[in-house]
């Protein structure tokens, strides 16, 4: 077996996934690039270092599970699945088209590697709790990872799930919050304030780790730390930049839910290609 990718290589994979996101949403003419780009570094680390998984055996019983609760950022999940070999990369360009396995939001049963259906915000953490609980009931060692949006956390169901996870001692459940501080209508703190966010999770009994979500080393360390928990679930709050990696998309709410026009596409591709080895 080849060496697992190091930090530089992971960064490179993340940037390739960013390019995939731009390519596929532009080809689709719609989709959600902003929140896909902010999560690309995490997704590279998860799919190339942290997750115990086998792309050629997507149903492997002991695999780690990943739940994309913020389902609108399906493009970055599809990029991670394609880059790690679940399906051919060419298929990425069918995103959102009639008959494609790459539905606008992740759909279980349509594509290997999709554990549950998401797209309606606020439900993923509950499903992740169910998956983690099943693992516990069956004395399995797998971990369940769940990626949440910061705007998404306004859905009350998240906090019902947070309560449950602590109550049942789901220490093999690891949640990530993509804390890019933007939702559709603008800054989360202006739309519906989420601060103080770490304290909220603390109050629900979770271990809380706060990191720079674009620092590969910090993501790796946080995941390792989270796996040490013997009692409680862990949330990793990742401070991120929505649209990260494409200058004019960064912190720009406009790119929450729209694809690039041809000029923007050229500019974005040029920026990303310049950093990809």
């Amino acid at each position: 077996m080849s060496e697992p990718p190091g930090i530089e290589e992971l960064q490179n994979i993340a940037n390739k996934m960013r390019l995939d996101v731009i390519e596929m949403t532009t080809a689709a003419g719609s989709g959600h690039p902003g929140g896909s780009l902010s999560a690309a570094d995490l997704m590279a680390v998860l799919y190339f270092r942290v997750l115990h998984h086998a792309p050629d055996q997507p149903e492997m019983p002991d695999r780690d599970r990943f739940v994309l609760s913020k389902g609108h950022t399906a493009p970055v999940l599809y990029a991670a699945l394609a880059e790690s070999g679940y399906f051919p990369k060419e298929e990425l360009l069918t995103l959102r088209k009639l008959g494609s396995r790459l539905q606008g939001h992740p759909a279980r049963g349509h594509l290997p590697g999709i554990e549950v259906s998401t797209g309606s915000l606020g439900q993923g953490l509950s499903m992740a709790c169910g998956i983690a609980l099943a693992g516990k009931m069956d004395s399995k060692d797998y971990y369940t990872y769940c990626l949440l949006g910061d705007g998404e956390l306004q859905e009350g169901q998240n906090w019902e799930a947070a309560m449950f996870a602590h109550h049942r001692g789901l220490n093999h459940l690891i949640a990530f919050v993509d804390r890019n501080r933007l939702q559709i209508s603008g800054n989360t703190e202006e739309v519906m304030s989420m601060d103080p966010l770490p304290e909220k999770w603390h109050a629900f009994g979770w271990n809380v780790i706060i990191i720079d979500g674009h620092n590969i080393r910090q993501i790796l360390e946080a995941c390792a730390k989270a796996k040490e928990s013997r009692k409680n679930p862990t949330v990793i709050i990742m401070n991120t930049v929505k649209g990260k990696g494409v200058s004019f998309m960064e912190n720009n709410p406009d790119f929450h839910g729209r694809a690039c026009n041809p000029d923007e596409y050229q500019a974005a591709v040029a920026e990303l290609k310049a950093v990809i080895r």
Binding site: G122, Q154, G156, Q183, S185, M192
Partner: peptide, 28 residues
Amino acid sequence: DLAGSTKTISFKKVAPERFIECGIAEAD
């Protein structure tokens, strides 16, 4: 969090004090 899509934003423009943003929390 969908005022731009549902177009309730048009109301917000004329009566901002009577526009109530609830965040992504439909049940609430």
